[in-house]
Structures are given as C-alpha cells and as structure tokens.
Amino acid sequence: MRGFQALLYRDLRLATRAGGGAALALAFFAAVAVLVPLGIGADLKLLGRIAGGVLWVAAILAALLSLDRLFQADYEDGSLDQIALAPMTLETSAAAKIVAHWLTTGLPLTVLSPLLALLFDLPQAGYVPLLVSLGIGTPAVSAIGAIGAGLTISIRRGGLILPLLVLPLLSPVVIFGAGVVSGALSGLDNGAIWLLSAFSLAAVCLAPFAAAAAVRLNLAG
C-alpha cells in the first residue's frame, strides 16, 4: 500500500507541476465547449438540450489528451523498470496511475462542468445529474484509457492511435453518461445512472489487469 501511495503522490505532483497535463486538460475542455456554440449558433433552447452530450464528449476528449503519456513517460526515462521491481504487483501500480489520472483530469473536469453548463443554459434540473454522471463515469474513462496507454507505450506517435483504440470502447460511457442528463431533463427515470455506475465499476475493477498485462509485455525493452 505504501508503494501505491508513493506512486500516486508522485504522479499527482508531476501532473500539477509546470508542464503537467492537469491544467491543459481543463483548458482544452473549456475550449471545446466554447467552440460548439460557435459552430451551431446561439440558440439557447437547442444548446440547453444538447449540453449534457456535448460536455460529456468534450470531457472524454480532454481526458484522452494526457492519457498517452500515462505510462510512456515512465517507459522512456527508465522509471517503469524501477516501478516494475517495486514490492507491489504491476496491477497495483497501474491502479495507482489510474487513480492519479482521474484525480488530475476526471475530477477537475467534473468540478468545472457546471460552469460550462451555464454557457449552454442547461435547464436547472440538469446540473446535479451532469455533476453526478461525470463524477461516476470519468473513472471509467481513466481506467479504459489506461489499457490503451499501456498498449501504445512503445509506439512513438502512440497519441494518434490511442483515441482510435479507446473511443469505441468508451461508447457506453457516453451513452449512459449523457443519458443520465437527458433522462433528468425529460423527467423520466431511465435507469441510466445505474447502468453507468455498473459499467464504471466493472471498468475500474478490470482495467488494471489488462493495463498491467499491456505494460508487462513492453518491459521486454
């Protein structure tokens, strides 16, 4: 557990230092959210209706931004070898990195989302569902993204392939996540929140194993 903590704290520190990905992901999230109304026009009724979906898509894209370096930076500078020798399994290390990634991207994105929802004139009933769905769903993005990050470690331009691998796998997150918001707006209890929770829970539990397997085969060097 101490190794888990050490890796978690180090990754948090790296992400928040200058050049870390945390602030960039937030800025990207905001920029995409601002670009959408510019593209489709300032029809507040329409914007309010699509806010949930747009913010969900923007959040996933923003989270993907820093994913390709999740393992790659450690792979390139030799830290990964040292981490592999630590007295904990590679699965635990992968879990620590997933948690760190979520704390530095998923969580801030969730917290920022109501502010951006204001720009879209999201109806009042949608704010809490938006916050809750992002809070529950973004861990799955970090977890499944970590599998892609592990698979593309050794690829020089892995950042280009990673979205192609990860985005199709994330389609249930978008569907259920945005479904939570649209369900609340239409006043229907569509059960999306439970489906989203189940998917996220399964992803967070299983992804460290797949990610660790992917990292392990790249340790061959």
Binding site: R2, G3, Q5, A6, L7, Y9, R10, R13, L14, R17, A18, G19, G20, E76, D77, G78, S79, D81, Q82, I83, A86, P87
Partner: peptide
C-alpha cells in the same frame, strides 16, 4: 539500467524520496 529513471520536474531529493517510499 541504461536509463536513469529520473523525473526532470522533480528535484534530486524528491526523486530519491519517491524511490525510497516505492521500495518501502
């Protein structure tokens, strides 16, 4: 190994402290 496993953003002491904790 060939690579030193040192994080450019962390100081010498921080780098070493991380590994000390990682290795228990």
């Amino acid at each position: 190994g060939h690579q030193d496993g040192i994080k450019p953003q962390l100081s010498v002491l921080e780098n070493l402290a991380f590994y000390a904790r990682l290795y228990g």
